[in-house]
Amino acid sequence: MSELRFDDEVVVVTGAGRGVGRSHALSFAARGARVVVADLGVQVDGSAPSSDPADEVVGEIRAHGGEAIACYGSVADEESAAAIVAAAVDTYGRIDAVVNNAGLGLGGLFADTDPGQFRTLMDVHYFGTINVTRAAWPHFVRANHGRVVNTVSEVMLGGLPGVTPYGSAKCAIFGFTRTLAVEAVAHGIAVNAIAPRAYTRMSASQADQMAANLAPPDGATANLASAMVPDQCAPAAVFLAHRTCPLNGEVLQVGLGGIARIAVVRSPGIWRSSLTAEDIAANLDEIGGIGDAQELPAVPTW
């Protein structure tokens, strides 16, 4: 098929100064998009903001003949998030897609965390996603077109210890993606998400666990962390942000050279006219069996 191009289109990528976000920004620019590189330039704990990461990515895009501008505001702040979108519209006259990738990597076992860590991650991941999307939404509605690509993580489904604050914030984004997708249909907008498998600054502390849990189906585990390069996640973001993408309300797990769909299903369960706790206890296998499970799509587009 022909190359998926973004000529004359404008894409905002948050957290675009390093890692997965940087790969997204470079990929969009290589396909003709004018890119707003938004990055606060902080460390994984949110400290030491710097304009350098965003500026470096913009410089790299321009060195290859592309168009890009840098923004340095925090997506957790509503006004700063709105300024990111305003920069796109003021500079280029339009906005076609937002890729919500900005985040922090705070973690720790639940007993060792405090409510402040949960609030910080919700502010950046969840409310940051909401803030940027809300700012772009009126432009999308007026254009009867727009793409929102959010960033979740498979740890939101469990499997790794020590990531409860992070996984909780990502799960909130999952719910936001699925529910907003329903409203998006009437306006020609699509809202999807990716779950990247990438070794970055944020995932470094869980590298060994990731290597054990994220091994590909063939069982190969040798030097898995070095194989989890962020560049392998960009194709999913590019596809979901393209105007021809038919998906809405979906989550694509991507990385390690593979891609898969994360779906929500409901088991057939059991049905009783007067259900008791004992009925549940006696029929756990039947309740939990998913052999004949029914998929619960956000929007029936697959």
Results as ranks from 00 to 15, higher is better:
residue 1 M to R: 14
residue 11 V to Q: 03
residue 12 V to G: 01
residue 16 A to H: 06
residue 16 A to S: 03
residue 20 V to A: 04
residue 23 S to C: 06
residue 24 H to C: 00
residue 25 A to H: 01
residue 27 S to L: 05
residue 28 F to R: 02
residue 30 A to K: 08
residue 32 G to L: 09
residue 39 D to K: 12
residue 39 D to I: 07
residue 44 V to T: 09
residue 45 D to L: 15
residue 45 D to W: 14
residue 49 P to Q: 05
residue 50 S to G: 02
residue 54 A to K: 10
residue 57 V to N: 00
residue 57 V to D: 00
residue 58 V to Y: 02
residue 63 A to L: 13
residue 68 A to V: 12
residue 73 G to C: 08
residue 74 S to I: 06
residue 77 D to W: 15
residue 79 E to K: 14
residue 87 A to I: 08
residue 89 V to D: 00
residue 93 G to E: 08
residue 94 R to Q: 04
residue 97 A to N: 02
residue 101 N to W: 12
residue 111 A to C: 09
residue 118 F to W: 12
residue 120 T to P: 02
residue 120 T to D: 06
residue 121 L to S: 06
residue 121 L to Y: 08
residue 123 D to I: 15
residue 131 N to M: 12
residue 135 A to C: 11
residue 138 P to C: 14
residue 143 A to V: 14
residue 146 G to S: 08
residue 155 V to K: 01
residue 160 L to Y: 03
residue 169 A to C: 05
residue 170 K to L: 01
residue 176 F to H: 04
residue 178 R to K: 10
residue 182 V to E: 02
residue 191 V to K: 12
residue 191 V to T: 11
residue 192 N to S: 10
residue 192 N to H: 14
residue 194 I to H: 12
residue 215 A to N: 13
residue 215 A to P: 14
residue 215 A to I: 15
residue 225 A to F: 13
residue 225 A to V: 07
residue 227 A to Y: 07
residue 227 A to Q: 10
residue 234 A to H: 09
residue 236 A to W: 14
residue 236 A to C: 12
residue 239 F to G: 00
residue 246 P to C: 09
residue 246 P to I: 14
residue 259 I to D: 00
residue 260 A to F: 10
residue 263 A to P: 01
residue 268 P to G: 05
residue 270 I to V: 08
residue 271 W to G: 01
residue 276 T to R: 12
residue 276 T to G: 06
residue 280 I to S: 00
residue 284 L to H: 03
residue 288 G to L: 06
residue 289 G to H: 08
residue 290 I to S: 00
residue 293 A to L: 11
residue 300 P to K: 14
residue 301 T to I: 14
residue 301 T to H: 10
